[in-house]
Amino acid sequence: MRPAPGPLAPAHLAVSGLSLSFGGLKALTDVSFEVRPGTITALIGPNGAGKTSLFNCISGFYRPREGYIRLDARDITATHPPARAKAGLARTFQNIALFKGMTVLDNIKLGRHAHMRTNLLEALFYWGAARREEMDLRAEVERRIIDFLEIDHIRNKPVASLSYGLQKRVELARALAMRPRLLMLDEPVAGMNREETEDMARFILDVKEEWGISILMVEHDMGMVMDISDHVVVLNFGKVIAQGPPVEVQGDPQVAAAYLGSGNPAELMRRLSAIGEAA
């Protein structure tokens, strides 16, 4: 059996001067920020601030009007989503995008698609190289991902039968199977209860530390964002209004204004801690 591949170098993502508009509507205006290798960067902002549009630009569904997106030294602004996957970009979706007709195991295996080589003829005969590749994948998925995310009891279950929290975890597993160097999480704990949220936060931190992957996430749960991220970028009306370490961003009057309509950071802090306790 071939040895499992060693840790990959975490990616550096740079977004610079990004603008996107739908007809006359400006979704993003001159957005610039970066995700430094091996850190967790959180993207926050009120509803409609442009977080998901930005995510879709980075993963290749929208083509920005201006600006560029770089993964390490490589400009990926105009590449197709499959090529971005090969370059080491993986993402999860806000409203879970698992394949309902397949088992958990098959969903996770799908993540590795772009890194496999079996062609149609080999697949029909399932001989030699094709079988070996499948078995290597199975072994690696079992050892590195299923164990890590504690989902061994559901590996053969159809995805549709799982609870919401578990589905989110399977989606993370699938993204990890892509061997990403930058992982993009779109609201990883939305709609989860406190226990599930804590589990997910722990997994995200473990992914950063053990797998050495850079992480970019959109999240509304402020308690979690402030707890685990290294860098926070705040969007409002398609513009970056503040960015920096969590503590600095929390104290920024503009951020308070965007969320509360008033410029009082103390009030924001009070409300945030209240939300954290309620959750």
């Binding site: 989503p81 090969k86 007709g101 892509m178």
Partner: peptide
Amino acid sequence: IAIRDRDISAEVLGIP
């Protein structure tokens, strides 16, 4: 199967 179930996320997974 991925294309049948959800073609957008199939593309993100690197399936042309």
